[in-house]
Amino acid sequence: MNLTLRVWRQPRRGSEGAFKTYEVKDVSPDASFFEMLDQLNERLNDQGEEPVAFDSDCREGICGTCGVMINGSPHGPQSGTATCQLHMRKFNDGDTITVEPWRALAFPVLKDLIVDRSPFDEIIQAGGYISANIGAAQDANATLVPKPAAESSMDAAACIGCAACVAACPNSAANLFTAAKIAHLGLLPQGQPERYLRTVAMVETMESYFGSCTNFGECETACPKSISIDVIAWMNRDYVAAQWKNLRKQGQQA
């Protein structure tokens, strides 16, 4: 396959960026999208040019490091697939492919296709954990978890934090990511003691960086783990419940 790539090139954070066009020849249809970019970068290296910078780590769709906008679709045209698992057989010989970084005010471009996603880390730091000390490893049956709760929690826990939901959202909202993390912990018995403080802290941190949900549903279709927007409904309900429950605890807080 011979392809024409239009790639966003930007040397550093805050600097001017622009699209640059590259011809990539003899691409195997069995190559992954990043193997194709690797092929381009090998050539750029040989020519003494700066290679295209992009995030990738596991290349098996489970780490959440990768993610670029491909022809206006987050992670490219195949649903339920991270960019690293997208293969060139999804494209046609002679195609022009536009590759862009995620765009949102909270995600400044660091270089080329790499954006700073640390607001996601801040959302997790606000409450995406369980701090109860559980001591040594205990019997798996010591804490009973209802099967439906375990399944729903696991569906939400599939989130890899790649930020395709933000990239896909016309409002640059991070509701799918935040809701997945809140539902993941809030559905389990281990998550109950901190549940309402967690929900409020994570939602309010999210809202300080990102837009809000207008229920377009774009995030759900962009998500490489196909997480349902039902988790957002769950978060909306839990946030309102949390505001009431936390009122009763106000006196206990410093």
């Binding site: 005010l105 909270a106 607001p119 801040e122 606000a126 403080l197 409020v200 802290a201 309010e204 941190t205 809202e207 300080s208 960086y209 990102f210 837009g211 936390n246 807080q253």
Partner: peptide, 9 residues
């Protein structure tokens, strides 16, 4: 529940 409010909103 006190969080750092930053750039966006």
């Amino acid at each position: 529940t006190k969080t750092r409010r930053l750039e966006v909103n």
